[in-house]
Amino acid sequence: MNRKKRQPKVVVIGGGTGLPVILRGLRDKDVDITAIVTVADDGGSSGILRNYINVVPPGDIRNVLAALSDWPDLALDVFQYRFDSSDKFLAGHAIGNLVIAALSEMKSGIFEAVQALTSMMDIHGHVYPVANEPLVLNAEFKDGSELSGESEITAAHKEIKRVWVTPSDNTDGHEPAAVDEVIDSILNADQIVIGPGSLFTSILPNLMIRNVGKAVCETAAEVVYICNIMTQKGETDNMTDADHVRILNRHLGHNFVNTILVNTEPVPADYMDYQRWNELSRPVKHDFQGLRDQDVRVVSTSFLKLKDNGAFHDSEKVVNELMNRLQQSHD
């Protein structure tokens, strides 16, 4: 009897611009993809929509849906289209953000809205907002001060000690929690991929939801962290790759990162346009002993793609390494 081989389950957790890059590379592989996306963004069109109609900020979710969709190019271009500033009423809004906001009202929540869009947009795999309500990111800085809101935290340009999330509507004092589908996907995964993305504002907001962090620590899957190539102003200035992992582990109270992908290809100093990519600071320094001290397996090679005078992860190289890791963990 011919039995169809089970596709390995790969769960990618994050937000921001790094997540769609990895998902685009994974969609053509023989894997069952689940993307778990942050809901704590408060900038741009997402922030405006959130302030007006109290929906989960849709920007990161929109980009993930577009990355995994089989829609023709024109349909995706319309979904991603952002009105320019001369369109006063709709200035800055992406059409996809408005569609997600509308469906959130129609379906009484972001989770069911995204499931409807998953079907409508011919999505490869699953897209799960990490929570079914908008969350606020909070930070305590090393000087003892505190701030709320992702954009405020980043703009403060102060050293962050720790972050946590609270519901934006916290009148009843409830604790945010992920829905069962999110937790089940983590516990049943063959590989968990975290990053690349802003450490404090794209990655940790997901892991700071108590049942998500618990599941990531308890899963039997290999947890792979894709370390950023560049440090980020106001978030990770002067941090090494080992510092990134140390902060992740400290926030969850457990050494849960099993493997790290580290780029060792130098970024040409004269190539970077730091005015255009003004959130970037300098290449992340390496501390391989610091990583080994945390029982992390280090995969160090060139993951670099130079594009538009910026330094990015090469989707193909990263995904090929993720597939190698999957193969090795199942041999």
Rank of each mutant, 00 (worst) to 15 (best):
V296I: 08
D331C: 09
G14S: 10
L135C: 02
R3F: 04
L207N: 12
R50D: 06
S185T: 14
H330T: 14
D28H: 15
K107I: 00
I229W: 08
A75T: 05
V55D: 03
R3P: 04
D87W: 00
D295W: 05
H124N: 11
N2M: 09
R6Y: 06
H254C: 15
R246F: 12
V284N: 03
D293Q: 05
A178E: 12
E152G: 02
Q115I: 07
P72V: 04
P58Q: 09
E316S: 12
I36Q: 10
Q191R: 15
C217V: 08
N54C: 07
S302L: 07
V37H: 08
E112T: 11
D241G: 10
G47V: 11
V64G: 04
D77C: 03
H330C: 07
L280F: 15
T154Y: 01
H286T: 07
L49R: 07
N249E: 13
P129D: 03
A139D: 04
A35S: 01
N138P: 01
R3G: 01
I203N: 14
I13R: 13
H254F: 13
R246L: 14
N258L: 02
Y128Q: 08
A101R: 02
S45I: 01
P8R: 14
V267T: 05
N228R: 01
S168D: 08
A75R: 01
E140F: 00
E316Q: 13
K161Y: 15
D122W: 09
G96F: 08
D60C: 11
Y52L: 15
G25N: 07
R50T: 08
L49K: 10
H157A: 15
D30Y: 08
L291G: 06
A67Y: 04
P266G: 05
